[in-house]
Lab assay of single mutants.
Amino acid sequence: EALLLQRRRVTVRKADAGGLGISIKGGRENKMPILISKIFKGLAADQTEALFVGDAILSVNGEDLSSATHDEAVQVLKKTGKEVVLEVKYMKD
């Protein structure tokens, strides 16, 4: 459990079709971090076996998301290339 509370760096390699394969919720306007709300089976994020629903995305390719709005986070995630480095931390409810 202590492991979950540490920052983790996960590299996601996207397939030619399909994006990261995650849905996010939260954002500055909700006074919440950007959280992974869904991981789609078989897509890139799922294949890492290292990302979990409830993980907060702290940064994407080094771009800090700690004070991002939901829309800003969506845009940052959309413009990523084939390889995406996510810094995440599991957030307890």
Rank of each mutant, 00 (worst) to 15 (best):
M32R: 07
L65Y: 00
G18M: 13
F52S: 09
L65K: 02
G54Y: 03
G81C: 11
D46G: 07
F52M: 08
V84A: 08
G54L: 01
T69K: 06
Y90I: 05
V12D: 03
S23A: 15
S67A: 13
S37G: 08
A50D: 09
G54D: 08
K38G: 10
K92Y: 11
F40S: 15
E72G: 05
Y90T: 11
D71T: 10
T11R: 08
K25R: 10
G21H: 03
H70G: 07
G26C: 02
H70D: 04
L3Y: 14
A50V: 06
V84G: 13
G54F: 01
L4W: 11
L51C: 02
D93V: 07
E87M: 07
G62K: 05
V88M: 00
E1K: 15
G21M: 03
K89I: 11
A2E: 14
T69D: 04
D64I: 04
L4N: 15
Q47E: 11
I36V: 08
S37R: 07
L51Q: 03
A2K: 14
V74D: 08
V12R: 00
A17M: 14
I22R: 01
F40H: 15
I34S: 01
L65T: 09
K92I: 15
A2Q: 09
D16Y: 09
Q47K: 14
G54C: 03
L20Y: 04
F40I: 12
M91F: 11
V88A: 02
D93P: 12
D64Y: 04
V88Q: 03
T48K: 05
L86M: 15
A17H: 14
T69S: 14
A15T: 12
A56K: 05
G26N: 02
E63P: 01
D46L: 01
L35W: 12
K38M: 06
V10F: 00
L58G: 00
F40K: 15
R13Q: 12
G18T: 13
S59M: 09
A56D: 02
G62L: 03
K92N: 15
T80S: 15
L20H: 04
R13G: 06
T48R: 05
A50K: 14
S67E: 12
V60F: 04
V10Y: 01
V53K: 05
K14Y: 08
L35M: 11
E87C: 07
E72I: 05
S59C: 12
G21D: 01
L20A: 00
D64R: 05
I57F: 01
L65H: 03
L65A: 00
N61G: 07
T69C: 07
E63M: 15
G62S: 07
D46F: 07
R7Q: 14
I36R: 01
L51A: 04
R13H: 15
A2D: 15
S59F: 08
K25T: 12
H70A: 10
I57A: 01
L5W: 10
N61Y: 02
M91Q: 12
K25E: 15
L77S: 06
I22Y: 02
R8K: 02
Y90G: 09
L43V: 05
V76A: 15
T11L: 10
D64C: 07
A15S: 15
S67M: 15
F40Y: 15
I34L: 06
I36M: 00
T11M: 12
D46C: 08
S66K: 09
